[in-house]
Simulated assay, not measured.
Amino acid sequence: MKKLFAFFLVAFAVLGLVIQSPALADGDPASGGQVFAANCNACHMGGKNVIMSNKTLSKADLAKYLKGFSEDAQTAIAYQVTNGKNAMPAFKGRLSPKQIEDVSAYVASKAEKGW
């Protein structure tokens, strides 16, 4: 019985180390707001899109245009910010991973609230 208990205790400990919440869940929307203001506002002020007006940062548009948004909004946004697409430039190398994490949390939060 003790061996079985020890086995389950070790199994749960290992699972706790292996299964972690996504890193982007730790993004700081307040810091992301500053990153957004400095890097994204020119094209996306108020959640709009001055280049492609039909592709806003509304929750509905993000779900429509970003692969995986419905499953994990922050990861989908971070992918877009990192790699860019079409008219949107890639910010990999211009923003740190932490800044991308934070701005993704900010955009997801604002989209959820309707900008």
Rank of each mutant, 00 (worst) to 15 (best):
D28P: 09
N39R: 14
S58R: 10
P29F: 01
G16L: 05
P29L: 01
R94M: 15
G32R: 06
A73Y: 02
A60E: 15
A87V: 14
K92L: 07
L62D: 04
A38N: 12
N86F: 12
F7W: 10
A13S: 11
R94E: 02
M1N: 05
T56I: 05
P97M: 06
F8G: 02
L24Q: 04
S31V: 03
M45V: 11
M45A: 15
Q80M: 13
A63F: 09
P29I: 02
A13T: 05
K3S: 04
A60T: 14
F5M: 06
D102I: 04
V18Y: 13
A108I: 10
F91A: 03
K98N: 13
Q99T: 04
T56D: 13
A38W: 01
P29M: 01
V107F: 04
G68T: 12
L66W: 04
F8Q: 02
V107M: 13
F69N: 05
T56V: 08
T75K: 10
S58Y: 10
D61I: 01
P89T: 05
W115H: 05
A37K: 09
K85Q: 14
V18C: 06
G114N: 07
L57T: 06
K67V: 15
A25F: 07
V14M: 02
L17Y: 08
M52K: 07
P22L: 01
S53Y: 07
A63Q: 12
S70W: 01
V81W: 00
L9A: 14
A11Y: 08
S31G: 09
A78P: 12
M45T: 12
S104Q: 08
S109Y: 03
N39Q: 14
A73H: 05
H44Y: 10
K59A: 13
C40Y: 12
V81M: 04
A90P: 10
M1I: 00
N39D: 03
C40F: 14
S104G: 09
W115P: 09
F36W: 11
N86K: 10
A42N: 08
W115E: 05
Q99I: 01
L62R: 14
A87S: 14
K64E: 13
G93V: 12
A108G: 13
G33M: 09
G33Y: 06
L4R: 12
T82Y: 08
V81Y: 08
T56C: 05
A30C: 02
A111W: 12
V107E: 11
S96P: 06
M52Y: 08
V14E: 00
V50Y: 03
C40P: 10
M88L: 03
H44N: 08
K59N: 12
A23G: 07
Y65P: 04
D102T: 01
V107L: 11
I51G: 05
Q80H: 14
A78K: 14
K98D: 15
N86Y: 07
V50D: 08
I51E: 13
G93A: 07
M45F: 10
K110Y: 10
E101P: 00
Q20Y: 09
P89L: 02
G84F: 09
E112T: 13
T56L: 02
Y106D: 03
V35H: 07
A87M: 07
L9H: 00
A73K: 15
A90V: 11
A11M: 10
K59E: 15
D26Q: 15
N86L: 12
D61H: 11
A30F: 08
S96I: 05
G16T: 06
M88F: 07
